[in-house]
Measured scan of single mutants.
Amino acid sequence: DYEVGESVTVMDGPFATLPATISEVNAEQQKLKVLVSIFGRETPVELTFGQVSKI
Rank of each mutant, 00 (worst) to 15 (best):
L18D: 02
E6M: 14
P19Y: 10
G5M: 03
V36S: 01
F39K: 12
V4F: 05
Q29F: 11
E42C: 13
Y2M: 05
E6Q: 12
E24H: 10
P19V: 15
V45S: 04
E3L: 12
Q51G: 05
D12S: 13
S23W: 12
T9K: 09
V36F: 03
S23K: 12
Y2R: 02
Q29K: 11
K31E: 05
K54M: 05
A16L: 05
V4C: 06
L47D: 01
D1E: 13
K54T: 05
S7M: 15
S53F: 05
G50S: 14
Q51S: 06
A27M: 13
E46T: 08
T9G: 03
G50D: 14
T17G: 15
G13V: 02
K33S: 07
S53P: 01
S7Q: 14
Q51I: 03
L32D: 00
P14E: 10
E42W: 11
S23H: 10
T17F: 12
G13R: 01
V36R: 00
A16C: 08
A20G: 14
P19L: 14
E6H: 07
Q51E: 07
D12W: 12
A20M: 03
I38S: 08
E28Q: 10
L18R: 09
E28W: 07
E46D: 09
S23E: 11
N26W: 14
G50R: 07
D1F: 14
T43C: 12
D12E: 12
K33L: 12
G50N: 12
N26H: 11
A20V: 05
K31T: 14
S53R: 12
V52H: 00
S23F: 15
G50M: 12
T9W: 15
M11K: 10
Q51D: 06
V8F: 01
G5V: 01
F49I: 04
V4Y: 05
G40T: 04
F49S: 03
G40Q: 05
E46Y: 10
I38W: 12
V25W: 03
L18E: 05
E28G: 11
F49C: 03
K33Y: 07
S23A: 13
P19R: 13
Q29M: 11
S7H: 14
E42A: 10
V52M: 02
S7L: 15
Q51R: 03
F39N: 15
V34L: 07
P44T: 15
V34P: 00
V45D: 03
F39G: 15
Q29I: 09
E42H: 08
P19T: 15
P19G: 09
S37T: 15
V34G: 03
R41T: 14
V10E: 00
F39M: 15
D1Y: 15
K31L: 13
K54A: 07
T43A: 08
A27Y: 15
V52K: 00
V4G: 03
P44F: 15
G13I: 02
S37L: 12
K31Q: 08
R41L: 14
I22Q: 01
V36H: 00
Q29Y: 10
L32I: 10
F49Q: 02
E24N: 06
E3W: 14
Q51A: 06
G5Q: 03
P14F: 06
T43M: 13
T21E: 07
Q29G: 10
E28V: 11
S53E: 12
V45N: 02
L47M: 06
S37M: 11
S23C: 14
S53D: 07
T9Y: 13
S53K: 12
L35I: 15
L18H: 10
P44V: 15
T48I: 07
L32N: 01
S23Q: 14
V45P: 00
S7D: 08
G40N: 07
T9Q: 11
V52N: 00
T9L: 15
E24Y: 10
A20T: 02
Y2I: 03
S37W: 09
A20W: 01
V25L: 06
V36C: 04
I55E: 09
Q30C: 10
K33N: 06
S37G: 08
V8T: 02
T17V: 04
A27V: 14
G5F: 04
F15A: 03
A20R: 01
V4H: 04
P14M: 08
I22A: 02
V45C: 07
V8K: 00
E28R: 09
L18I: 06
E24K: 05
P44C: 14
T17M: 11
R41P: 08
V45T: 07
R41K: 15
N26I: 10
L18Y: 14
N26R: 08
F15L: 06
F39V: 09
S37I: 15
S37E: 13
D1N: 13
E28P: 10
L47V: 11
E24T: 06
F39S: 13
T9C: 13
V34M: 03
V8L: 04
N26G: 04
V25M: 05
E3C: 11
G5N: 05
L47Q: 01
E42F: 09
A20N: 01
F39R: 12
V10G: 00
P14W: 07
V4L: 07
F39D: 15
M11Q: 07
S23T: 15
E42L: 14
E24C: 09
T21N: 05
T43H: 12
S7K: 15
E3D: 08
D1G: 14
M11P: 02
V45F: 07
E42S: 09
V4W: 04
D1M: 15
T43Y: 15
Q29C: 08
Y2D: 01
E6S: 07
V36I: 14
V10R: 00
I22H: 00
G40R: 02
V10A: 03
E6Y: 05
V34Q: 00
K31F: 08
S7G: 08
V45E: 04
G40L: 04
L32S: 00
I55Q: 10
G5D: 04
E28F: 09
S53N: 09
F15G: 02
F49K: 02
E3S: 12
G13K: 02
G13E: 02
V8G: 00
L32E: 01
S53I: 11
G50C: 08
F15P: 00
G40W: 04
S53Y: 05
E46N: 07
Q29A: 12
I38R: 07
A16G: 05
I38G: 08
Q29L: 12
T48V: 07
E6N: 07
F49T: 04
L32Y: 04
N26Y: 13
K54F: 05
S23M: 15
A27R: 14
E28C: 08
E46H: 06
V34H: 00
V52E: 01
F15D: 01
S7W: 15
S23R: 10
G40V: 03
S7N: 11
I38L: 09
L18S: 06
V4N: 04
S7Y: 11
D1L: 14
E46I: 09
I22G: 00
T43K: 05
I55A: 11
V4K: 06
E6G: 08
E24R: 06
V34Y: 00
L35G: 03
F39T: 09
T48L: 11
G40S: 04
Q30E: 09
L35S: 06
T17W: 11
D1T: 14
I55W: 07
V25I: 12
A20Q: 01
S37V: 15
F49R: 03
Y2F: 14
A16P: 02
V4T: 05
S53H: 09
A16H: 06
L18F: 14
L47W: 00
E46A: 04
A20I: 02
A20Y: 02
V34D: 01
E6F: 05
F49A: 03
L18M: 12
Q51C: 04
E46S: 06
P44Y: 15
L32G: 00
V36T: 03
V8M: 02
T43P: 02
G5H: 04
E42G: 06
K33V: 15
E28T: 10
G5A: 04
E6D: 13
V25P: 01
Q30S: 09
S37D: 12
F15R: 02
E3A: 13
